[in-house]
Design a protein around this nucleic acid. Structure first.
Length: 724
DNA sequence: GACAGTCCTGTTTTT
DNA sequence: CAGGACTGTC
């Protein structure tokens, strides 16, 4: 290692990296070199004699964990294999695989992802005959996950305040189903491994002793169970380093509690605090604007981010006429950026919700600009992929009812709802899995003749497959299953024609992924390798397709997904009331403050140029509606903003506060672009004002309220704009 | 039992 | 607009 690796740190960073007094809380503002401090600190600890296996480094996302690994590998010469670096969920899973017996699990336990969980709960609701109107599955799901995140089992869930007994019953039934199927959901990974430590003093002490240095990234995002998990592996001799920024806490809807940062001070002895307040990322203008916004939040620890960078360009605001116009504007600016010879992957388009990406994608496609969308439907969440994975899960564990239900009739083999009802009843009666129920019912001929033969065919298919595990490589096994089951034929059926191509490609990609995975994991036991692969795909649902990461693509993602990243050029789209802040998060002060933090996170991703845009009207859920610009826009000091828009006459109040400073850009209403509230004239009907747009694209109609003849719906070609 | 067609409703962020 | 629930036909 370069002995001078500390020389490029500022004094606060240096202090954090080389701290020796026990526990440390690093308050690290956006762009203040947080990851750098963590990585350097680990390197420094190793240089001071700590062994890699003494270190536990926890991050929140897979992306951050990978990043940390890569940076460490660059700095150090030796292997990191014995160092525990990963996400909370990944590490908890690792622990449970090592101690499955003590944790009361079966060795072949599998991870239940959110989608599997929904399906399972749906079945449970049905079994309990719950009226879906009165008892939505989503509610149960939130209830169960919320309680697990607080560390509460169903027996404890009722203890604080009134809880409807129905929810407790669902929770209980769900727990039973999971444990009899050998399934563990995301929250369960943490809760179960926490309980493992709590109930097993010897094991706990073993790990406490091992992990002399515990480092936690994004500490503001920890929830109760994650906090307890960390606490339980900490001893009085451990050294905890927690890094976080309360202004970037954006996951409270998932149980995260940034108060955990303060809680440290009372739960741990002698917590030293280091503040990183120098920002190395953004221009002063961007930073000032972001600071101005976040200052409106009441509940914050408070800090003062500053920078040495120059002012840079003003933030550019564009009020589009609709979402298509907004997308076109963004694409125009990206083309300009490209013409200047700048890298496309330094440009990011950020939005509040995934649904917003489609319109932008269309415009990028039309302009021939390569792009990459993060999030949305991920690779391992695709139906055809999950189908194959369900087969693999059954090979590993016949009692996996969730997998069983998924593929019992895929491709259709005459085992529909009626047969399943019989199986489920038998399974419930005898308290066994669907597979076992099937075995019994086939043997004792308790099913109609047709179903019996279909079911025994299905079961021998699975049995045949599982004999191959030891013989084939992982990739060969996946291929084998696809062939055995006849998935190519299945997806080639006429009703799937539309997606056939991409589905078959995805199946090939899965074979590919399986092959790659085997080369990455050193596991000789094929059974364990398959287990590891299944866990891998559940925990990292698809960012693995990063093979073209070096590609020069524009990056599209939600604001949440952008946390921790930085780009030279950033677009924040859909800055509208109801969209951002989101309508579902406008109900309380707390939610609104979280939206504001999200805005802060988004803005501070930008290094040089920041564009923010909103639309006058937007098509949402099938209908077009009028929008108001986001309150966040008004919280930015006007002198930091330049408008690229002709001021909209119908909504002068929008930019009231900014108006003196808005430079009147070029008229964007030239050509066919009209805007709401525009004064127009018509040969026959006279003068009027545009009140709405209907339809979209080439088929946009304009509703005009005429002074004399009232409201009319017209094709835009018959009206003329009059610039006032 | 399978499947196609119709009606209806609910809209966020993710390990 | 899309996905899910429900209905009717083969």
């Amino acid at each position: 290692m370069n002995p001078n690796f500390l020389s490029d740190l500022n004094s606060a960073q240096h202090q954090a990296v080389t701290f020796t007094g026990g526990n440390l809380l690093v308050l690290a503002g956006a762009g203040s070199g947080k990851t750098r401090v963590l990585v350097h600190r680990i390197a420094w600890l190793l240089s001071q004699g700590a062994s890699p296996q003494n270190i536990l480094a926890v991050t929140f996302t897979n992306k951050a964990a990978t990043q940390m690994r890569i940076r460490l590998e660059q700095m150090l010469q030796f292997s990191l294999a014995s160092m525990w670096v990963g996400t909370f969920h990944g590490l908890a899973h690792r622990l449970l695989r090592l101690h499955w017996q003590e944790a009361g699990l079966v060795q072949s336990f599998q991870i239940l992802d959110a989608d599997d969980q929904t399906r399972l709960l749906k079945r449970i609701h049905k079994a309990l005959s719950l009226d879906p109107e009165k008892w939505p599955v989503k509610q149960s799901q939130a209830f169960i996950n919320g309680n697990k995140e607080k560390g509460l089992r169903y027996s404890e869930a009722a203890t604080n305040g009134f809880v409807d007994p129905v929810l407790i019953r669902v929770y209980q039934a769900y727990e039973n189903a999971c444990s009899s199927s050998g399934l563990v959901d995301f929250a369960e990974l943490l809760l179960r491994s926490y309980e493992l430590w709590q109930n097993n003093q010897q094991l706990r002490e073993q790990y406490q002793k091992r992990f002399g240095h515990i480092l936690v990234d994004e500490f503001q995002d920890t929830n109760a169970i994650q906090y307890a998990w960390i606490k339980s592996v900490s001893s009085s001799d451990s050294n905890l380093t927690a890094v976080g920024d309360d202004d970037q806490s954006i996951y409270s809807w998932r149980g995260a509690d940034s108060n955990n940062m303060q809680r440290l001070k009372s739960d741990y002895a002698n917590v030293n605090v280091v503040r990183l307040e120098q920002n190395y990322r953004s221009t002063a203008t961007i930073l000032k604007a972001a600071n101005a916004i976040i200052t409106n939040n009441k509940s914050r620890l408070g800090k003062n981010l500053w920078t040495n960078c120059g002012d840079g360009d003003p933030i550019i605001l564009y009020a589009a006429f609709n979402e298509i116009d907004e997308a076109r504007y963004v694409v125009d600016k990206i083309q300009l950026w490209r013409k200047q010879g700048k890298a496309l992957n330094e440009a990011a388009i950020l939005y509040r919700s995934n649904a917003q990406s489609r319109v932008i994608e269309e415009q990028l496609l039309r302009a021939g600009i390569p792009y990459r969308v993060y999030g949305g439907m991920r690779f391992f969440e695709r139906a055809e992929i999950k189908d194959v994975l369900a087969y693999l899960r059954l090979l590993v564990n016949r009692n996996d009812d969730a997998a069983f239900e998924r593929v019992i009739n895929l491709p259709t083999r005459g085992l529909g709802e009626a047969a399943l009802v019989l199986l489920r009843n038998h399974a419930r009666l005898h308290n066994c899995s669907l597979w076992k129920a099937g075995e019994t019912m086939v043997a004792t001929q308790q099913l109609p003749a047709r179903a019996t033969s279909a079911l025994s065919g299905f079961m021998s298919l699975i049995n045949d497959g599982s004999m191959q595990i030891a013989k084939l490589t992982l990739a060969e096994l996946v291929q084998f299953i696809i062939n055995l089951v006849g998935l190519h034929e299945h997806y080639s059926k006429p009703q799937y024609q539309e997606y056939k191509q991409s589905r078959l490609e995805n199946l090939d990609e899965l074979i590919n992924a399986a092959g790659q995975f085997s080369t990455l994991v050193s596991e000789d036991d094929r059974q364990l390798l398959l287990n590891a692969f299944l866990a891998h795909v559940a925990l990292e649902a698809g960012e693995h397709l990063d093979k073209d990461d070096s590609n020069n693509c524009v990056q599209l993602m939600t604001l949440h997904a952008a946390k921790g990243l930085e780009f030279s050029l950033v677009f924040l789209c859909g800055m509208e009331e109801g969209l951002f802040p989101h309508i579902m998060s406008m109900g309380s002060k707390e939610e609104l403050e979280e939206e504001r933090r999200l805005c802060y996170v988004g803005m501070t991703r930008a290094k040089q140029k920041l564009y923010m845009s909103c639309a006058d009207s937007r098509q949402l859920h099938g209908s077009t509606n009028l929008r108001q610009p986001s309150r966040f826009l008004r919280e930015i000091p006007p002198e930091l903003i330049k408008s690229d828009t002709l001021i909209n006459s119908v909504k002068p109040a929008l930019f009231e506060d900014l108006s003196q400073d808005l430079s009147h850009g070029q008229d964007v209403s030239q050509g066919n672009d009209f805007y709401l509230g525009q004064n127009v004239s018509h040969q026959e009907f006279g003068e009027g004002v545009i009140t709405s747009f209907e339809g979209h694209g080439e088929h946009t109609w304009v509703r005009v309220k005429f002074r004399k003849v009232g409201s009319k719906l017209l094709s835009p070609e018959y009206i003329r704009g009059r610039v006032i």
